[in-house]
């Protein structure tokens, strides 16, 4: 599959602060690529480097097979973006905003009807001629997306697109992304710290923390029942870990952690594992299967012992 974005060893330093540290990843055509990280992890800085708003300190960015540093205009002609808040000209109407940006987005000249269609796609046709300052946050977000799509780009970059939206607004944006991906074959890079949102739409994802890549891979792998992480807490973890090492479960043990023992196994094996623990007379305080993206995200961003488990 042809990569749309190929980032190699990308770093950005702001004086002493390292915002992005030697980051590499690839986004393929047709991907909805989830870009995850806590606040301050370096997501926005990375996205701004992809959009030439920030100059990288080191590393290379290739998009559509071209170097960003030498083919900026050609690449941006095929890219649409909403970065953090959807800030547009509040003293203009939605129609004027879309019209204004359509002129410099590199697409063909659009007629009035086509511009209105663009607004209709995000449900703003009835308020097309109202000043944006009268819009709600959700409407501004939808307008930002209409502007990002006005030149029919191949790649859409959305930085925290659901920030500040109500549940209905979040669902609308999610459905729009799915529509763009499936019906229009767009490649979407979407960053968020709302993991529940990303897991519903992304087919691949990247998790970063403190500017570093923690994991990259297929989202489905995280929900693969054979990849379930089981977290076990006992009265004496050290002794229990030793007992498990001597048992048939030894191959499933993950590197030792301070307060819990972690094993990777098929979800269907959990009852048998439970039985084994009883047979070995290991006193259990808790036993938790963890296979949600959120758990995984918290795990890799608070302690990176198990990153390899999900890295393709």
């Amino acid at each position: 599959m042809q990569p749309v974005i190929k980032v190699s060893n990308l770093s950005k330093h702001f004086n002493e602060i390292v915002a992005v540290n030697n980051l590499s990843f690839t986004v393929n055509q047709g991907d909805i690529y989830g870009f995850l990280g806590q606040n301050g992890a370096g997501k926005s800085t990375t996205i701004r480097m992809l959009l030439t708003l920030i100059e990288p300190s080191h590393g290379e960015i290739e998009m559509f097979g071209m170097h960003l540093s030498t083919h900026r205009k050609e690449i941006l002609r095929q890219t649409g973006a909403v970065i953090e808040k959807p800030d547009v000209y509040k003293y203009l109407s939605a129609f004027e905003n879309v019209q204004l940006f359509s002129k410099i987005s590199g697409g063909p000249k659009l007629t009035r009807a086509q511009l209105l269609d663009q607004l209709a796609m995000v449900g703003l046709q009835e308020r097309a001629f109202s000043k944006v300052k009268t819009y709600s946050q959700g409407m501004k977000q939808r307008l930002g997306i209409a502007i990002a799509l006005v030149h029919n780009p191949q790649l859409i970059v959305l930085d925290e697109p659901t920030n500040g939206l109500d549940p209905q607004g979040i669902a609308d944006i999610r459905n729009l992304m799915l529509h763009l991906s499936k019906e229009r074959n767009k490649t979407i890079l979407v960053s968020s710290h709302l993991l529940s949102e990303i897991q519903l739409i992304a087919n691949r994802l990247l998790i970063i923390d403190k500017g570093k890549k923690m994991a990259e891979g297929d989202t489905l792998a995280l929900f693969d029942p054979s990849q379930t992480l089981v977290e076990l807490e006992t009265l004496d973890n050290k002794k229990a870990f030793y007992q498990l090492q001597q048992s048939r479960w030894s191959a499933k043990l993950q590197p030792a952690r301070e307060k819990t023992i972690v094993l990777k196994m098929d979800k269907n094996e959990i009852p048998a594992f439970h039985q084994s623990l009883a047979q070995m007379q290991i006193p259990i305080l808790s036993l938790q299967p963890r296979n949600s993206l959120e758990d995984y995200f918290l795990q890799v961003t608070t302690g990176n012992q198990h990153v390899e488990a999900f890295t393709n």
């Binding site: 959009l51 900026r72 205009k73 941006l76 987005s105 590199g106």
Partner: peptide, 9 residues
Amino acid sequence: RLLLTKPVS
């Protein structure tokens, strides 16, 4: 930032 993500130098 929106303006500068467009294909203009």
